[in-house]
Design a protein around this nucleic acid. Structure first.
Lengths: 135, 135
DNA sequence: AACGATATGTTAGGTTTTCTAACATGGTTT
DNA sequence: AAACCATGTTAGAAAACCTAACATATCGTT
């Protein structure tokens, strides 16, 4: 339950490993970083550490480059993808919020009804109290 | 479908990353390797590269050491665990083989029965042929 | 209490990997 | 042809890692 699991965003891999995993050269990887397509973390000693997400991005970049897309194009595509993801997150949050709100409302409703019932009971208990006929 | 996915046995992490992930010192990690509790791969330049499995093992080792188990004990525990896993694999293979055999047998049975039925039909068609009463 | 073994720390010297920065180059675009 | 883009190549420096050796604290055993 602590920070043991490996998250997709954890900086784990040195550039050498990433080179093998992606079949990109160090030069290419650094160039793509230079153009802000990725933002690998750094060690205290200034060495790059890549996450699984970074590797995914690099593989996407590689694909797109193979298809003739240039840096600017890839940047735009990534922006749009981010926006979509952002939209998805918001969508999910909204959904969740709605769900929670519905629950909340349900609880309110329930409480309200109980109170109503309570009044009812009270008034029904205090038989003979005609104050309810006056405002 | 190619070798893209990250397997638990892939050598990926340098010792520095593993140190952070496991909170073990380099000295400890190398010592455990010396005692053959792990066998990380090496780069061409002789640097250790650890897999997710290695990291799992190291976390287990850490746990066991915290519980007072020594190298020899851990080695035995790992041996037993390996044997059990091995047994499980064999068990699964047996199960699978049995399944396949059963299917095969079923097919054989079916064929056999059809042949029998065929004979039956034939014989029933060739009414008057009494050879079946002789051996 | 002394001893030896175990697990780990520490240090030293050497090698590999990675870093930045600069310049080189082949293909495109203008 | 000139400029640009993506990448290669090189050089020098720094970080990370390697092995090997020696140091040390904590044990269990004698």
């Amino acid at each position: 339950m602590s920070g043991k699991e490996i998250r997709r965003s954890m900086p784990l891999f040195p550039i050498g490993t990433v080179m093998q995993l992606t079949e990109l050269t160090a030069r290419q990887i650094r160039y793509y970083e230079e153009h802000q397509l990725i933002s690998p973390a750094r060690t205290d000693g200034n060495r790059r550490l890549f996450s699984l997400n970074d590797i995914d991005s690099l593989l996407e970049i590689k694909d797109l480059i193979d298809q003739g897309v240039n840096m600017a194009g890839i940047k735009q595509l990534f922006l749009i993808k981010d926006q979509q993801q952002q939209a998805n997150v918001i969508q999910q949050q909204a959904e969740k919020a709605k769900q929670e709100l519905t629950d909340e409302q349900l609880r309110n409703l329930l409480r309200h009804e109980l109170q109503q019932a309570g009044r009812f009971n009270r008034s029904s208990l205090r038989q003979g109290d005609m104050s309810r006929f006056f405002h």
